[in-house]
Design a protein around this nucleic acid. Structure first.
Lengths: 248, 248
DNA sequence: TCGATACTAGAACCACGTTCGATAATCTGG
DNA sequence: CCAGATTATCGAACGTGGTTCTAGTATCGA
């Protein structure tokens, strides 16, 4: 009983002897692979070969692919948190919350493989939890109930998550390979839409020009600002509003 | 040249001879598998064996696993659209939009494997596109620019998508196997949070009681209502508001 | 010097998506 | 009624990927 390896993948902790590899090296290489070609590109074998080692070594540092992904996410989230510091304080809690959400969104634009994974992990200590705290802290200065605060943070993060879901999916290989122009790829939507019966699809025809050549960031900002407008209203901070209204 | 099979997986269309199988049967079985154990449970082999056939037969009806998933999603989306009809018309566009979003959310609660996939497919005709149209159509009655309408629908769908992302991830096997009580699983968050330093994590301590035993639906509704409040404001329909404010 | 621990390494196992060619059932036209 | 084409079935086989296991090497404490 009690096989030799009890808990691998836990803490190689102390900087040990010849650090030919280390958890940092593993995570760094993993992030490289992810940045280069997205989530499917991160394979244990590929990672091992990039590190010039065997698959078994990788498993010494992480417990599996899922764990690896979680740690990679946590890794880059550290950078996002550092970015938060660099922003000037405006004094208005909602403005600061907005700035944070935009920073997070931009990180997701750069690394679509973050997908919506950056929300897993609030059950354990880590940068994901820290991020949640930083966002929520802004709301402490608002006149809200704890439940309202809790819902507000979730809502704001939700806007980022859904934008991330949008960004993280598409590139259908042909675009990646450069066989199809990105312009043409996006225009496909519009082409299909315009061919539809206007009587059956009045809305689609109404917005088709907006959809064509749509801007992901503007889309995100619009959704974010709708949520924040609702939040300001709830906190009694809307320009000219007074009575907070309960939603649910 | 011109190998025998030009376009399989396109339309077995016409109800053919001995319909020992059919695209409907395939989709039905696929949805069963998905309902039973989520997305990972849908394997080509598993599906084939449930249908009492070989893997090759499955590939006659669908071009691959991805296509299968897309069609399964489209399949259940048809049911959601039918559900829309059953709702009484309130007359208020925003209320109707809200009711639709809730209906969609409830479908996702029932079938977390819908994940955020139900947004892929608006580039081709199908129920996904139809759904988008139905949601947007409500907004035509609002005093908004096409761009604002476009952003509003995206925002509302985003709320559902992010809720779906939340719902679609968790069950870490132990809960599925019944080894861990669901209650205890959810309580883990709260336990961890309470153990944190209140000085470092003031927000988390502020909301920990709300998080403990949190209600997914209430959370979704709160986010939805924040967005809709912002939308009402934008459309000049806010209770007591008058001047629409541009966000971006 | 001797074990124990920390770490490396890759062969082997298994599940999966997908391809392919062989085969049967059905339809079409003569 | 009979060829040939079309439609559909089937499972062996290939490649890839996650994970496990066992054998081995380096480094440390005593």
């Amino acid at each position: 009983m009690t096989p030799p390896r009890q808990r691998p993948a836990d803490r190689p902790s102390r900087e040990r002897r010849r650090a030919s590899h280390s958890i940092e090296a593993v995570l760094g290489a993993a992030v490289e692979l992810l940045d280069e070609a997205g989530e499917p590109a991160l394979t244990i074998r590929g990672l091992a070969s990039r590190l010039g080692t065997g698959v078994g070594s990788v498993y010494w540092y992480v417990s599996g692919r899922d764990d690896l992904l979680d740690r990679a996410v946590d890794h880059v989230l550290g950078g996002v948190l550092a970015e938060f510091e660099r922003h000037p304080r405006t004094g208005d809690p909602v403005d600061e919350l907005r700035a944070m959400a935009v920073t997070l969104f931009e990180a997701v634009v750069d690394r679509p493989w973050l997908g919506s994974r950056f929300m897993r992990g609030i059950d354990a200590e880590g940068n994901s939890l820290r991020l949640y705290e930083e966002l929520g802290r802004q709301l402490l200065r608002l006149d809200l109930t704890p439940l309202q605060r809790f819902h507000a943070v979730t809502a704001v993060l939700g806007v980022v998550v859904s934008a991330a879901a949008d960004l993280g999916q598409e590139p259908p290989q042909a675009v990646v390979d450069g066989l199809v122009e990105r312009e043409e790829y996006l225009g496909r939507y519009a082409t299909v839409w315009r061919a539809l019966d206007p009587g059956e699809y009045p809305f689609l025809h109404d917005v088709v020009d907006e959809f064509d050549g749509h801007d992901d960031k503007a889309q995100f900002l619009a959704a974010l600002d709708l949520t924040l407008a609702g939040l300001r209203l709830q906190a009694g901070r809307a320009p000219g509003a007074d009575a907070p209204a309960e939603g649910s």
